[in-house]
């Protein structure tokens, strides 16, 4: 083949992937707008956007509905989807396992254990305002679980397979401990915990949005900066190491990012499953495994799935809010299956 032709096609391919990212970004924006526009009070689209851009001109009820009900809910959906999906992709690459996600390797189970301790036993950091106890506990446990995972695997000095198995073992352990806590919980605390663990965006407020948004903004550049190394790691740990990549360091910092993203997201909205698994796969199926593209694509696809879930959780039964953790799976699975089959046909 002519070199010029390859060059041309390579450029075209590069542009096509950029375009795909752009399309994904546009879909996120469109779906987000739909998400904001959807609500039981059937507000006109014009009124919605007028209130967003000129809140002072709107009446109190409309202002509160847009700024305290719809926007925090929808923005949090975007951020949680982005954070969990990015965390999922990093985990799948660094642990070389397509089944890895914050929800299969015990991170979210650890968060649940922390939350359960706060809810059932009122156990948290001394001196902490009790209203933050659940979120702070969930964060500490999720973050701690990833650190523990690293520590244990380093003790064993063994490879990623051991890390994945340890993660699964920890997942079961944390779930068992949560079970024991549920056993000693009062009926009312149990109800509160179940509500927490179903995952809900109704808890979102601008404080939590700022925190999660900042975490993503801080972590993303480091993810992108590591993208070539991650791609090389995906092609085999031994060759990557022989090219001079410090794989242990790469893996460590990647898992630090994973734990920050997951712990913060789960602390605020509870355990929302599946998006951390399905988001990265959607990204990879669409755009391939060049991490320069797949990392941002995972961020966008996760945000997209959660935004769709957010719409569904409000629209299925207008006036009520269905637990978004449950909806995410219901929305994510069909997209996932469709992508797998449409790719097979190609």
């Amino acid at each position: 083949m002519e070199t010029d032709l390859i060059n041309l096609q390579y450029k075209r391919r590069f542009r096509r992937r950029l375009l795909l990212l752009l399309l994904l970004g546009v879909s996120v924006v469109v779906v987000f707008c739909v998400d904001i526009a959807v609500g039981p009070s059937l507000m006109e689209l014009g009124e919605v956007f007028k209130t967003i851009f000129a809140p002072a001109a709107a009446d109190l009820a409309t202002r509160v509905i847009i700024w305290e009900v719809r926007l925090p809910y929808s923005v949090m959906a975007l951020l949680v989807g982005a954070a969990l999906s990015l965390a999922g992709l990093e985990m799948q690459t660094t642990l070389n396992n397509p089944m890895a996600s914050p929800f299969t390797l015990g991170v979210s189970a650890a968060a649940a254990l922390g939350a359960a301790l706060a809810i059932v036993l009122s156990a948290s950091i001394p001196g902490l305002d009790p209203k933050w106890a659940v979120a702070v506990n969930a964060f500490i446990f999720a973050f701690g679980s990833v650190m523990l995972l690293q520590f244990l695997s380093r003790l064993g000095g063994s490879g990623v397979e051991a890390l994945v198995l340890l993660g699964i073992a920890m997942d079961f352990t944390f779930k068992a401990l949560v079970g024991i806590l549920q056993y000693v919980a009062s009926a009312e605390a149990l109800q509160q915990f179940v509500f927490w663990s179903l995952g809900s965006l109704t808890r979102s407020n601008w404080e939590s949005i700022t925190v999660l948004g900042s975490i993503i903004a801080v972590v993303m550049p480091f993810s992108i900066a590591a993208s070539w190394q991650m791609t090389a790691l995906r092609l085999g740990e031994d060759s990557a190491r022989s090219y001079g990549i410090n794989v242990r360091r790469l893996r460590f910092f990647s898992l630090v990012r994973v734990s920050l993203l997951t712990a913060t997201a789960v602390a605020f909205v509870g355990t929302i499953g599946f998006v951390g698994l399905v988001g990265p796969h959607i990204a990879k199926l669409l755009i391939g495994e060049d991490h320069r593209f797949s990392l941002p694509a995972a961020v966008l696809s996760g945000a997209l799935v959660m935004s769709l879930a957010s719409i569904a959780s409000k629209a299925i039964s207008p006036g009520a809010i269905l637990p978004v953790g449950v909806i995410t799976s219901l929305i994510g699975v069909p997209i996932f299956v469709w992508l797998i089959y449409s790719r097979k046909k190609k």
Binding site: G39, V64, S200, T202, G319, L322
Partner: peptide, 15 residues
């Protein structure tokens, strides 16, 4: 809105 004994209402609906 809620078919069962307990459920979560959308605050927008309440307002």
């Amino acid at each position: 809105i809620l078919p069962g004994e307990v459920g979560t209402l959308n605050m927008e609906y309440v307002i």
